Amino acid sequence: MTDKGFSADEIDTSRPHPARMYDYYLGGKDNYEADREAAEMVIRMTPDARPSARANRDFMRRAVRHSAAQGIRQFIDIGTGIPTSPNTHEVARTVVPDARVAYVDNDPIVAAHAGARLTNTGNAGFFLADVRDPDSILEHTTLRELIDFDEPVALMLVALLHFVRDDEDPMGIVHTLGKNLPSGSRLILSHATTDFHRDVDADAGEAYKNATSTLTLRGREQIEPFFDGFPLVEPGLVQVPSWRPDTPLPETGEHTRIAFWGGVGHKP
């Protein structure tokens, strides 16, 4: 179930796109010269960009698995990005074999890969939409066909809101997406930050100035309010490697500079 909703001439490879830059950080091949050049600029300014992206991806995997283990059978993954296995449906179905997943992204390149990698196993769908218009997501036919809003849902905003500027009302976006979710739902959210190396991370936004979305890095005190209405489960809002790690963390090393906060909230 895939709604591409675009023509080939809408794919712009001349400007870097955050989803394709993220694919490059993860070692993927679904990116273009403009994406690679911008990503390398970020890496020069912030050498922790690659391990941060990988740690964030691992956080997503653990948070989805945890949510599925708590009985969540439905996931709305907004800002899906270039498919990189294991994807949300693959992780969730290791715990809940019939888990349903609605994938959403605003990049036609993501849509081009969605049919082959995300939606060919049933109970999963993809459609193009922008998180800045949350009502269009909630009202989309694909979402309504997949997701039963009478049952708990995991809303996923992983590595997404730092591409929403303050004047685009990220708090309002999260509120709109989450306000009608039933009791027992989850909010899985991570966000890039300057909190762990302020000396270099603030400059990383320069590489995104010509991208399709600019970068707004926020501190913990600005990120935690996104969980209003979704009290955080243990261990709270933490640096992503520290969120319920499934392998021991070294006492020192690169994980101490991972530039993401992450957490999971539970709707009472």
Rank of each mutant, 00 (worst) to 15 (best):
T84I: 10
R100L: 07
L138T: 08
I109W: 05
P134R: 09
R93I: 07
R15G: 01
R36S: 09
Y25Q: 10
M41W: 07
D105V: 08
R65K: 12
D148H: 00
D148C: 02
D130W: 01
E90S: 11
H17D: 15
I78T: 06
T142Q: 13
A102F: 06
A99T: 10
D150V: 09
T119Y: 03
G81W: 08
G71I: 15
I137K: 13
A49I: 09
D58C: 07
Y32N: 03
P134K: 00
K29V: 07
L143G: 00
F59I: 04
E33Y: 06
A99D: 08
Q70H: 09
M45P: 03
A68K: 06
L143F: 04
H140T: 00
V153D: 06
Y32G: 07
D35I: 05
A53E: 11
D105P: 03
L155V: 09
I43M: 14
M156C: 14
G125M: 01
A102E: 02
R62D: 11
L26Q: 15
P47F: 11
R93G: 06
P51V: 11
V131S: 07
F59E: 01
M156T: 10
I72M: 08
G71L: 09
L155G: 13
R93Q: 14
S67L: 04
H140C: 01
G115C: 01
S67Q: 01
H17C: 10
D107W: 06
E37Y: 01
R144F: 11
A112R: 05
T46V: 15
T80N: 03
R57Y: 12
P47R: 06
A112P: 05
I137H: 02
I147S: 09
Y24L: 02
V95H: 02
R144S: 12
D130E: 09
N106H: 01
